[in-house]
Design a protein around this nucleic acid. Structure first.
Lengths: 191, 191
DNA sequence: GTCTATATGTCGATAGAC
DNA sequence: GTCTATCGACATATAGAC
């Protein structure tokens, strides 16, 4: 246990610095030199724990997926009422986007930073968004609507698109003021 | 006239190469060396026409704005029927995204490539999206709905979010198969 | 496992010839 | 206006001491 904590301390410092920098500045603008400087480790220590910069990027996205879903669930599941939970998606966006300086979605951002041919990176992004859609579908299911399955899957897709669109909108305009209206739009869609 | 064409030929070649590369690969992954190689000009010729790489980026976004809106209007205004025009927004997305190898929106992508502090770049993106929302508002106005102004502006915003969300979705999943359903969702929103 | 020092390449940008 | 040659800085990655 002690040995594990000790040996992973450097790795953790690197991953934390990289996560912050990749998210705030983008992948290609962030150099390895800056990562190791802010993590306060030596360059060779970095290459001991990660075999390349792209490898670090994969680790960053995997951890980000876990962290972000934790934040999302924490906000949504504050309420036990199904409708409030669904609308909680947008309350989450308000808090998360404002608290992250409107840098938007780490996964959408990373897609823009690589050409389409980087399949390994894009697969991680797709998995993340699959999970998001599945989570929205679960929230919609719990509403107990009497609509047909077909209508429900349309509804899930619509809410998902509004969710993604909101992230982009807030990232560009650097404000969350639009979200109130969007939450009301979703409320109307359901009834 | 001849002199102008001749003197701007190099500039045009550079801008065309840069537009393609910035869009396909992202800004930071694309080096000046690659741009001048594919434009088949000398490096000093590049710095004669543009004072920096960032300056080239601005020229790229300004031309892209003109080009893209031209494509959008051309598709939307094929019909003279107001509802068909509005739905034409999504027909446009189907064709454009598939024809551009699902690289998505040049403006959303460039935002991801720069830290939030690059105000000059972000302002160009905001102007572009303002214009898009104004165009959607115009299409919605022409429907001649009897709704209140407040409801209409909510509708414009909802369609805009669905539009942006669709771009992101198609970029990630590299398919336009979701768009048919989204167009039907918009049709229902109006009636 | 972590360090310093270094290898090798490419970056954005410039000087000066023509 | 376009060219070749080159600058200094920084990129990713590695070697070898401790």
């Amino acid at each position: 246990m002690d040995r594990q904590n000790s040996s992973s301390n450097t790795r953790t410092k690197i991953l934390e610095a990289a996560s912050r920098l990749f998210y705030e500045q983008g992948y290609h603008l962030t150099g390895i030199n800056q990562v190791i400087a802010e993590a306060d480790v030596a360059k060779a220590s970095f290459y001991y724990h990660f075999c390349s910069k792209e490898d670090l990027c994969v680790a960053y996205l995997e951890q980000r997926h876990q962290d972000w879903f934790g934040w999302l669930r924490e906000e949504v599941e504050r309420s036990r009422e199904p409708l409030e939970r669904l609308l909680g998606l947008f309350t989450f966006l308000e808090r998360w986007l404002a608290n992250s300086d409107f840098r938007g979605c780490a996964f959408l951002n990373i897609i823009a930073d690589f050409p389409s041919s980087y399949h390994r990176i894009r697969q991680l992004v797709v998995s993340h968004k699959d999970a998001l859609q599945a989570y929205i579908a679960q929230l919609v299911d719990h509403l107990g609507c009497s609509d047909s399955d077909n209508n429900l899957s349309h509804l899930v897709n619509t809410i998902y698109l509004l969710f993604e669109g909101t992230i982009c909108q807030c990232q560009m305009y650097r404000t969350t003021e639009f979200i109130q209206d969007t939450r009301e739009t979703v409320r109307k869609l359901i009834s």
